[in-house]
Design a protein around this nucleic acid. Structure first.
Lengths: 121, 121
DNA sequence: CCATTATTTCAATGCTTCCTGAATTGTCGC
DNA sequence: GCGACAATTCAGGAAGCATTGAAATAATGG
């Protein structure tokens, strides 16, 4: 998944706001089941309409998607988009300074890298 | 280097703007030698005063630092801060979804991970 | 000291963002 | 269909951001 610089800016911008970063964290921890808008509003202590605006920003950046379940609307993270965003960041990072990435690898070695992508090459 | 969520927001916000992301890329590619403000203004085609404002944002977020060299002011990236920013992002990412990190590892395997950190464990 | 170059600071403008309250749309159980 | 719940949309105002032109600060060379 390759993306333009404008995409990266939009994704960074979507996360560059306390409430939205909080939403992102909550959705990441929730995993594929996702979280409803109301539940997010309650747990983050934000007005429902305010939160709705933030969720729109996250969705337009492609970082999240929504699905309806009864009366609720469930939000989930679009993992591939998150991945390509970090990818873009890391590639720019490594461009002139490979050693900057070493701590990243360490983060993955502490239980993050070998959990079921299905790719075994 | 541990940082607060507010730090992460400030760092993401600093990069969430086309000109500033361009500056960041240029400084990353330049490496430790850095680039002068005027050179950045010329190569990115931005007015010097406008660029100065953007450089201030990057510095206040901790992502860059400045040093004077004659009449010029040279800007360089603060690699440890960049590293901890990506670290924060990746940790939130991995929290509920370890497989999202796999492509990151691949990015490092393509020539990014084993370049002179001095750590050989 | 003076002119020149490099960069920043200042003040003002237009634009965007964030939040709030009220109204609207969509869904469920009866 | 009706009342209740869940979420979004709309219109508003306050605050912040990006850009510009003009002025100020800093350093170099003669």
């Amino acid at each position: 998944m390759v993306q333009s610089e404008a995409d990266t800016v939009a994704q960074l911008n979507a996360l560059a706001q306390p409430t939205r970063l909080g939403v992102f964290k909550a959705l990441m921890q929730a995993g594929p089941d996702g979280v409803s808008a109301g539940e997010l509003a309650r747990s983050l202590d934000v007005a429902p309409n305010t939160l709705s605006a933030h969720l729109t920003v996250l969705c337009r950046a492609g970082l999240t998607s929504q699905r309806r379940d009864g009366r609720s609307i469930i939000y989930t993270v679009e993992i591939p988009v998150v991945t390509s965003m970090i990818d873009a960041l890391v590639n720019d990072c490594c461009a002139g300074h490979p050693e900057a990435c070493a701590p990243l690898r360490r983060a993955q070695e502490t239980g993050c890298g070998d959990a079921g992508t299905g790719r075994a090459s």
